[in-house]
Design a protein around this nucleic acid. Sequence first.
DNA 1: TATTGTTATACTCTATAACTATA
DNA 2: TATAGTTATAGAGTATAACAATA
Lengths: 149, 149
Amino acid sequence: MADQDQERRDLGAMLAPVLRALIAAERPVLDDHGISMWGYSVLTALEGMPARTQAALASSIGADKTRIIGTLDELQAAGHITREPDPADRRARLLSITPEGQRVLRSARARIHAAEDLLLAELPAGERRAFLSAVQTLSTLPVEEILGR
Amino acid sequence: MADQDQERRDLGAMLAPVLRALIAAERPVLDDHGISMWGYSVLTALEGMPARTQAALASSIGADKTRIIGTLDELQAAGHITREPDPADRRARLLSITPEGQRVLRSARARIHAAEDLLLAELPAGERRAFLSAVQTLSTLPVEEILGR
DNA sequence: TATTGTTATACTCTATAACTATA
DNA sequence: TATAGTTATAGAGTATAACAATA
């Protein structure tokens, strides 16, 4: 792996400020839409597929079941999600995004992607494509397992 | 920018789990070396160049001056850095890494890079090179300003 | 008066464990 | 008894402001 190891800086040290800036740029957008970061994450997850339990939803976005309860309360109060007892198992709550939630999600995402595009535009076109492809690849890998070997 | 915007997921949402896993992988390595994450960051910064003030060092690693004081106390007690009053301005503290600090830093970094290489090895060679190049480019840009436009 | 480093305080997140209601 | 959701508590990390020493 000589081509990777030549005096490069830590991957984490290089990525951390970028991610921090991305998150900071998201905040005012999310504020304008009246949702939190976890709320945005929940809406994104529910857009793809309704959730059968809150715990399953939480783990799918890398959160704890206790951590998203307040977020679900807010989203429900704002009419962005529905949250009904499962008739087949009344302990569980069936979660799905509402049309209004989808509208808010799409609006926020458009502005977030627009900001991200400003950053990506700084990269040469070829490098940009490879970067996006690599990030998408990494996001599908079991990163923790790979690093833990 | 059509080539960037096609149905891709949020950059932040894709990068966050990767960074989280990178940080989690660093922890046991840093524990073995008896330093904290901020300590590792401080040693990395001081390796390149001694610092004239603690505040300057803090801002160079994206931290607050009050946040690194405990870290500096630990590093100094462990003999990893020196911290002397500046003769020219006794309010300030001149900071530099010791040979022992350099040894610890290099040892920790070798293991961290080895773990990162496991992850990078999952990418096709061409994509890996472009990814690393892009990350290095991004880490030199004023990311916050670009995103804030 | 301004600046460097330090300490103290409060606030936000997060993790853990206990509780309820259903099964 | 086991599980889904909820609540309560404590802990870590962070931000802000006040303070002492020096300029």
